[in-house]
Design a protein around this nucleic acid. Sequence first.
DNA 1: GGCCAGTGCTGACTCGTGTTAGCACCGCCC
DNA 2: GGGCGGTGCTAACACGAGTCAGCACTGGCC
Lengths: 350, 350
Amino acid sequence: MNGSGPVPRRRVTQADVARAAKVSRTTASFVLTGRTDMRISADVQRRVQRVAAALGYRPNLAATGLRMSRTHTFGLLSDTIATSPFAGELIHGSSDAALQHDRLLFVAESEGDSEVEARLFEAMIDRRVDGLVYATMFTREVTIPAHAADHPLVLLNCFVRSGSLPSVIPDERAAGHEAARTLLGAGHYDRVVLLGEPAPRVFAGRERVGGIKAELKSAGTRLAGNVRCTWSSHDAYDSLLRFLRENPAPTALICLNDRIALGAYQALSTVGLRVPEQVSVLSFDDSVIAPWLVPELTTIALPHYAMGHRAVELLATGALEPGAVRVPMPLRDRTSVAAPRERSDSSRAR
Amino acid sequence: MNGSGPVPRRRVTQADVARAAKVSRTTASFVLTGRTDMRISADVQRRVQRVAAALGYRPNLAATGLRMSRTHTFGLLSDTIATSPFAGELIHGSSDAALQHDRLLFVAESEGDSEVEARLFEAMIDRRVDGLVYATMFTREVTIPAHAADHPLVLLNCFVRSGSLPSVIPDERAAGHEAARTLLGAGHYDRVVLLGEPAPRVFAGRERVGGIKAELKSAGTRLAGNVRCTWSSHDAYDSLLRFLRENPAPTALICLNDRIALGAYQALSTVGLRVPEQVSVLSFDDSVIAPWLVPELTTIALPHYAMGHRAVELLATGALEPGAVRVPMPLRDRTSVAAPRERSDSSRAR
DNA sequence: GGCCAGTGCTGACTCGTGTTAGCACCGCCC
DNA sequence: GGGCGGTGCTAACACGAGTCAGCACTGGCC
């Protein structure tokens, strides 16, 4: 006799449920999709529900995707450079939002290769994603291929010049204001030095500096110094060291990002200036190293998680109005900012 | 008259191609899937190909997925803690491998919540992924829910006790050997101090220390000191500072990870010891800060990119033998290791 | 001229689901 | 008792592809 053997465990389908509940597949479908406009007796409804649960029925989303042209799936396409620690946050926020809206995310990276980008784009469209997020690692302007316009699309951390596409970017300008306000609030007034300008036409740099200067101006003061350097810890180290040898020490330092702040810490340590007792340090990005530094670095965070979350949420809710959503950048108030110990003679109590 | 208006641009299907090429849909299907066992004249083949290209036909993968039960899609499920900068690398490697094998990756994170994990798991299965990668941020042992065994599964950066599942992990032990060998090669022999043991039953720590000690032993020497501290820069800073005040300075320091190395740098700077002239520093992980430090940190890299790549490749090629694939950890030879300047009297030329 | 083998293509079914049109039954009313 | 309105369900088609069985035609052979 031919033993039944281990059944190859086919997945249970709607038809299985219908058969077991002794109704037509149509009826099962109506009950399981929860449609009320078709008259199904309460009795049958319960029976189908119960049988479905008992058999562990789960709809085959490949099939519904085909039938409905909605796959409950989004694509996240980024140009992420592998070394960026922010990529994880962006994906994390996106992934969380997707889960909340019962979606799943395809994630892929083009490394800036536009041919690869096109291939990935096609691959997602071929799988009939319901929408796309196009993300960049650094906030910048992008151009989007024309055929992309056929599909729901949200730009993440980037924007198009025309502003004709929905996009999510960090509010860098407000962050600049916040930075200056924080130092002013701690009592720093006229011996605040900026480290890192000019960022070569980089959105973040331009906006941050703009916000800082505007805030200081409206408080009736200005930067006491402006140390130029690239956004690398090594250059920041060298540049600040040179500055400190030729100028009076500032009471506070605004570093345009955490990498610069790291270089600044090392330079300050080299000349024997202590943070925050002698020099306060405030920075931007809240990269992983901020809490590792001694003392822990006070910095204004790039809200990558929140941005990713927001972008996917826009797609999921269909709120696709053109224009930029600016996500606030929160201050991570740690221990590198303190009140200035000695007042310079030109400072005044506020 | 009812103007034709802008056609809602329905995607072109195989049926469209067949119609335009004046063949049956069956024939179109055979040509487009490149099947040769069915006899189609070369003439018709060319015609179909040409028409398909002209119309820009692309198969609907939701449909083939349904028909074939193969979606050309994998799922990557991780417990990633958002703050980890390594997540990006893991995903990057996986994504690249997927692209190479014409697959797309669902990526999702559970944040260690097993209920969320189960939901994501279901969501992927419901979308009929061809296989799953289960990834952890830190190398560790995991337990996999039983029903997962029904699907092709590769463990990434983790393993099951029984070893019954294919898994990809970093070769931490070999890295320990490499670390010791590197210092020995630079001339450090008997004044090498370890900073960071014991890692509380952490795989990476155990293996690294094991490799280091074994290598030193086989070279006829041993660690000159063992400074215990947690894997945080702050604790490393404090612990090393205390050690340096009570002991002769080592010629080389092995830090069990880069965070510890950062604390060590700051402590060495505090007591006026220069890297690498007076103390060489060697570390593990190659986190983002390694190249930012002054001098740049020599460290043995966690091969997250390679591991992600390998895991997806295993799935794509179907090479799913049980047991662990150990991925080598490359030395990033920067500038924090140099030959010791002065020999201690007990050292001998090698 | 009828049979056979080979060539080249197509009809019809399938995957698992959503949806429209319509069928069978019941009770009521005149 | 025959039409009629309502109730409760189902047959049949569609989504876009892959695949099996078989049909129509040709040419050669006895």
